[in-house]
Design a protein around this nucleic acid. Structure first.
Lengths: 210, 210, 210, 210
DNA sequence: TATGAATGAGTCTTCATTCAT
DNA sequence: CATGAATGAAGACTCATTCAT
């Protein structure tokens, strides 16, 4: 019976379909993160979004698509470089730069890894994610960014000439991923983490030996 | 209406409560692995186990406990050393030994990581898991095993004296974990994996330089 | 799958939420009265109401609330003065007026007492009822009505000046209650009842002695 | 597998069927009174009785019979004169004797009335009760006892010669019943009750006028 | 286009009852 | 005769989805 979206939503979205979609995806994300994917019912999402359940279906084919897109979108956003971190080749020690990278990555990964992992419980959802990921533009990839930093350092001679920068970057990313996974698994809510000895090992390993 | 358990089940369990519990846990695991945790309804599990739905409740308080124990048990089993792999310090190259370790670990981790990750979707389940894990005996830990191997090699002089074996082991484990995670995420069903350049990097890094 | 309410129901309720609520409460009452409270399952009620089981939950939080409200509402209705009975002080004999009152009360009490008693089997329901009754407006109370009649008669001198009208009214109400209880207990389906000698005793007792 | 009843039960029953039956009925009564009839499952009763669920069926045809007999037996017991109360015609005032009777009756009725009322929720149970009650020996009836006391007092001239003692007794019983009903309905746990003005009215009414 | 009531399949769970031991 | 595990129907309740308004 009540036709227009609530004033609040219209105000924030301008009533544009794409903006409303994103408004819903934001709501879905909040629900997933606070209640868990298993509790992210269409009702809960609609409620969080401040709209009627039926309205969801004007923007998404079904719950699966809504949830899949919620996750995908967040993965995409979190994978973007934030600009906050600018590793400056030649400045600071390699080790401290890598520690900074790790700490910085944690912010995003603490959200990204559990979110992605949640999808492992649902075969259909995971398949939806997989096929969407195929098509996705692998625009930004933190590993690539890290690799490029290392390559710069290598040019500067601060990283051993024989270093496989791709391998090192990949290793560091794995460490970050696994850390985030373990943190969530044990319910560790600390936002920061001590310096990792694994990173020290790597920094040492890539230091040129005169 | 009530009948004894099916002959098949009695045959395989001897009708012993503990064996039946495990029979059910096995069934639950199969359902979780083939249909996903989200589809692991009590009915589906009972059906897979070949028993009536109500029978589950003679062995488990509720679905949450059943599922949590299924996962915990499998984690426990998969964390046991298989005995199949015996890293022999001093034999073969370090690099090839590490590659063997990684390949071997993958077998278990391809199951372990997705299974654990599944629980990330369900707040209650994850909490149940967490508290059980607190109490669990961390009997075997692949990282420890790997670390000990590296220490032996260091004693033998095949690993650089300055190597932090704990850090190296931990790094390798993270690589394995993340690989398993990524494999499941992209639906990679290949059971074997090419040699990892990350491992080569590590092997190189810990090689003594004289 | 989802369809509007059946035409029949829409016709009788105008599709208004409050009317539908009452339609459901009516159905629940019919079930309780014909099958007993113990058989008043949500299914049975939904079926009697001609709606889907899930629809109940659009109108009531849970079964307990539905049942409690069904009972409370009926108690409320049955406790209203029907207007059919108008005891006229000064007209007819006191005894016959009291007999009329008793007979008339029986109509409501034959429904009210067993309905209320049903709730005695369910601790939760009884508690729900109790707390609702606390809040309820004790608008009409047959005892009060009877007491007022007696007071009028006393003013007219047809009831002894020393009569405690409240006590007499209360006594008569108790008799009515107990009769209804006993009738239901023994399954007495007679709608009318012979003149009660207890009432005769009371009528006699309050007659002024010159 | 374990064959004999628990030692405790054997000790208290002598292993005699009839004693075991009563042991079970006692247990059932405790469950009904503490949890309500609706929660008196066969399991709960068996558990309270300290026996296995299946054992119930050696003593009772089904749950309905068990519950019906539990209630009937208790009604029977509670209807027995306790011997504690001996109304002594000619001693004390009539009013105080009646008050004593009422107070004394309350003890039993606070149990009897709710127990009986519970059965109103279950058509089948009530029918079972009804047919059993038909056959029951109406051995003791508090109304009869009270009536006899009043007749004695009438003989002594302490009760008006014109008093219909049966009607008076019946009225008092109704008052007691209704009081117990109302007490349970409102959850009144007070065990004693103030002097009732209704009883005063009756006492006054039956006092001889010279 | 947004609504939200209605749907009914499906979820977890309980329970009276049976029967092999 | 006691046991208690097994049964499966039935219970209360949830939820994704549809569609008349």
């Amino acid at each position: 019976m009540p036709r227009p979206l609530s004033e609040k939503i219209v105000a924030s979205t301008g009533g544009e379909a794409e903006a409303i979609r994103e408004h819903i995806l934001d709501a879905a994300l909040r629900v997933i993160q606070s209640e868990g994917l298993a509790s992210a019912s269409t009702r809960a999402i609609a409620s969080e979004a401040g709209i009627a359940p039926g309205t969801l279906y004007n923007y998404f084919g079904d719950r699966l698509q809504l949830v899949a897109q919620t996750i995908l979108r967040r993965i995409h956003v979190l994978s973007q470089p934030t600009g906050e971190l600018e590793l400056q080749p030649g400045k600071g020690s390699i080790a401290s730069n890598l520690h900074i990278f790790v700490k910085h990555s944690s912010l995003a990964l603490d959200e990204l890894v559990p979110l992605t992992a949640s999808a492992f419980s649902d075969t259909d959802l995971l398949n939806a994610l997989r096929s969407e990921m195929m098509n996705a533009d692998n625009a930004f990839n933190p590993g690539k960014y890290l690799q490029e930093y290392l390559l710069e350092e290598r040019k500067l001679g601060r990283v051993s000439r024989t270093t496989d920068c791709a391998a090192v970057a990949s290793t560091i990313i794995s460490i970050c991923h696994d850390r985030a996974f373990q943190r969530f698994l044990i319910g560790d809510t600390r936002k920061t983490e001590a310096k990792l000895k694994e990173i020290d090992f790597i920094a040492e390993a890539i230091t040129p030996r005169d």
